Simulated scan of single mutants.
Amino acid sequence: MREFIPPAARFIDLPAEFAMRRGGRLTGARIAYETFGRLTPERDNAVLILTGLSPDAHAASHPADTDPGWWEAMVGPGKPVDTDRWYVICLNSLGSCKGSTGPASLDPSTGEPYGPGFPDLSMEDIADAAAHTVRALGVDRAACVIGTSMGGMSSLSLLARHPDLARSHINICGAASALPFSIAIRSLQREAIRCDPQWNQGRYDDVNYPRRGMFTARKLGMMTYRSALEWDDRFGRARIAPEDRTDDDPFGHEFQVEGYLERHARRFAHRFDPNSYLCLSRCMDRFDLGESCGGSTDEALSRIRLEKALVIGVETDILFPLRQQQQIADGLAAGGTDVEFLAMDSPEGHDAFLIDTVRFGTPVSKFLTTL
């Protein structure tokens, strides 16, 4: 079990005894974050970014860490999330392995990693930890909360549980609850990890590590992050050249799409803790904003009070399909929020916001300039 902490990450301590929604407490927990730009004396220009399952807090390059960030094309001076104007705070989610306390972190009561003993994580816990962090940074009310993918879920939870924390919201490829197809895919991902003998009930190390389980989980994920249209256009039925084959297995990788999935899986498998993957994945499956707020999903969305919101979905997204973003937009509008809804015609599927930044950048930039 290892953590993968960006070199410029900074930390905010959570309350000494951080109570988890489903029981249990964390002692000595922390949240990793990075900031971009400057906070005004009035403290009114903060933009909070909540990420998907796997990114860290390093959204973009800056003097303390010049490596490109996971949203490099979107965050920075003169970019759609313009750090010449905005003070951007990007958080690593509670339960992750990128600096915030999670299963790979040391349990102060034992001196060993939490591993499978990490308390049952919920999206509400992630939201509460984010709210505490923002306030600890001196921001009482953010100008905007931006949530992408899983971050779209945690953003809605944050806005519902901390109603005065933000004036506006950008929800990109998010959802107010998990759908059966997404739950099924994530269930298979978790099964692949847990069925790897090296997982050892969550007690693995760098030598005995569930590589094959993580490879399979990541490949399943990649198949849902992109679209069949992109696979067709990018790979067709192109085969791997014989000299590039890595083994003589007659059932081994033959097509270029297989090689692509294998390369991505190998890069990811040793950059993310398997137990964190399990915790965050299950946390997404269990999230239902309506259940969390004691009513229906539409009612819960209508109770969120914002000045403005931009909700963006992608027509080719099969993991968080477009109707989920439409539900968010309709629900927020029912509560009086001035909402703009955009259905992007992008071939890249769920990951389009990471790839098709030219298409996404314009509406995000336009929305933020109106605040």
Results as ranks from 00 to 15, higher is better:
residue 70 W to F: 00
residue 75 V to F: 09
residue 156 L to F: 05
residue 67 D to L: 02
residue 65 D to T: 06
residue 61 S to W: 00
residue 55 P to F: 11
residue 85 R to F: 10
residue 110 T to I: 06
residue 82 D to V: 08
residue 171 N to W: 02
residue 164 D to Q: 14
residue 85 R to I: 09
residue 158 L to K: 01
residue 107 D to L: 04
residue 121 L to G: 01
residue 88 V to K: 11
residue 65 D to C: 06
residue 102 G to R: 03
residue 106 L to A: 08
residue 133 T to F: 07
residue 90 C to Q: 14
residue 50 L to Q: 03
residue 112 E to V: 02
residue 130 A to W: 01
residue 55 P to W: 13
residue 125 D to Q: 03
residue 159 L to P: 13
residue 78 G to P: 11
residue 190 R to L: 06
residue 83 T to D: 11
residue 158 L to T: 14
residue 130 A to T: 01
residue 188 L to E: 07
residue 51 T to I: 02
residue 103 P to S: 09
residue 105 S to Q: 08
residue 135 R to G: 13
residue 120 D to C: 12
residue 126 I to P: 01
residue 158 L to N: 09
residue 144 C to T: 14
residue 184 A to Q: 05
residue 158 L to A: 14
residue 177 S to K: 15
residue 104 A to F: 00
residue 100 S to D: 00
residue 141 R to K: 15
residue 123 M to T: 13
residue 163 P to Y: 08
residue 51 T to P: 12
residue 156 L to N: 07
residue 186 R to F: 04
residue 121 L to W: 03
residue 120 D to V: 10
residue 146 I to E: 00
residue 183 I to S: 12
residue 100 S to C: 01
residue 129 A to N: 07
residue 127 A to N: 04
residue 179 L to H: 14
residue 69 G to C: 08
residue 54 S to T: 15
residue 65 D to L: 03
residue 82 D to I: 08
residue 114 Y to P: 07
residue 127 A to R: 02
residue 158 L to S: 14
residue 178 A to N: 15
residue 89 I to K: 05
residue 141 R to T: 15
residue 151 G to E: 12
residue 80 P to T: 01
residue 178 A to V: 06
residue 54 S to G: 06
residue 182 S to M: 11
residue 89 I to F: 03
residue 119 P to E: 06
residue 167 R to Y: 01
residue 86 W to Y: 15
residue 139 V to C: 09
residue 126 I to W: 04
residue 63 P to H: 07
residue 96 S to N: 12
residue 184 A to E: 00
residue 65 D to A: 04
residue 179 L to R: 13
residue 120 D to F: 04
residue 178 A to P: 01
residue 129 A to D: 02
residue 178 A to H: 03
residue 60 A to I: 04
residue 106 L to G: 00
residue 52 G to Y: 05
residue 182 S to W: 00
residue 138 G to F: 09
residue 85 R to C: 10
residue 189 Q to T: 09
residue 173 C to F: 10
residue 76 G to N: 04
residue 111 G to K: 12
residue 138 G to T: 11
residue 63 P to S: 09
residue 149 S to D: 08
residue 171 N to G: 14
residue 180 P to I: 14
residue 84 D to L: 05
residue 170 I to L: 01
residue 171 N to F: 03
residue 125 D to I: 05
residue 111 G to D: 12
residue 110 T to Y: 10
residue 75 V to M: 13
residue 150 M to W: 12
residue 157 S to C: 14
